[in-house]
């Protein structure tokens, strides 16, 4: 990491990146699974090596710097050199870039229209989530989700919502000394104050001294069974649809 950063500083001027191609990403994924996933995790979530979805080392480094790191490893760390022909390394790199790049910027397989149908129909997502002002207030705004998150994090959010809770969405029940009960998500809480947003979107600013009992519930308020209720094709198309969501649209 230290070395990678050092190299990056020297190379900022070259911060161009090759556009990612669907074939390269697909081939790179295969190679990643055999050469890298053992240390960096099946979806890049990290393990012996760092998380490649959320870390900034990848998104901030140039193609050259990243390539050198993959080919020669990072001296003095557990990151080994990779003994593969250069063109295969470039394919791995295309895939690795995609791990942390906003989903909107990378090729994603699936049918966007069919995904929209799942989102607005069978998936029932609009009950909680809004896109461009249409939908519920309880879940996070998905208008620009394609720009805000890398693909794997979107996939994880939909299929395994309990794994990582978007900040400000911890479920809670507050029993107030006044006898009132508030339920919703905690936009913020400290030792002294709570900001709770209920299912109607109403904000409640509560002082800790006014709370008799607080229950901060584990897990996500979002249904956790989409892996069962949606078919593989529906899940793929839904994720494609989410990856295309951008407040700015095509610039």
């Amino acid at each position: 990491m230290r070395i990678l950063l050092w190299l990056m500083v020297g190379a900022v001027a070259l911060a161009q990146r090759a556009p990612l191609k669907q074939e390269d990403v697909a081939a790179g994924r295969q190679l990643y699974m055999s050469s890298c996933a053992g240390c960096h995790g099946l979806s890049g979530e990290g393990g012996r090596g760092p998380n490649l979805m959320t870390g900034r080392a990848v998104s901030r480094s140039t193609d050259d710097v990243l390539f050198q790191a993959l080919k020669f490893g990072l001296a003095g760390t557990d990151m080994p050199p990779t003994n593969l022909p250069d063109e295969k390394l470039w394919q791995i790199m295309a895939y690795v870039r995609g791990l942390s790049a906003p989903a909107y910027e990378i090729p994603v397989e699936g049918d966007e229209k069919a995904g929209a149908a799942v989102y607005f129909g069978k998936g029932g997502c609009t009950k909680c989530h809004a896109i461009a002002g249409k939908g519920g207030v309880f879940g996070s705004d998905l208008t620009s989700i394609g720009h805000q998150r890398p693909l794997n994090l979107i996939r994880e959010a939909v299929l395994d919502p309990g794994r990582r809770i978007a900040p400000g969405y911890q479920r809670a029940t507050l029993h107030l000394k006044s006898g009132k009960t508030l339920e919703g998500v905690l936009r913020d809480y400290t030792t002294y104050n709570y900001t709770l947003q209920d299912g109607t979107g109403e904000l409640h600013f509560v002082k800790a001294v006014d709370v008799a009992d607080q229950r901060i519930l584990p897990g996500s308020p979002m249904p956790g069974n989409y892996r069962e209720t949606l078919t593989a094709a529906e899940r793929r198309d839904l994720i494609k649809f989410l990856s295309r969501q951008s407040a700015r649209g095509e610039q």
Partner: peptide, 16 residues
Amino acid sequence: MRVLLMVALAAMAATA
């Protein structure tokens, strides 16, 4: 939690 009332963004227009 199951009984939590949830509304759409547009329906919130009724609030302040």
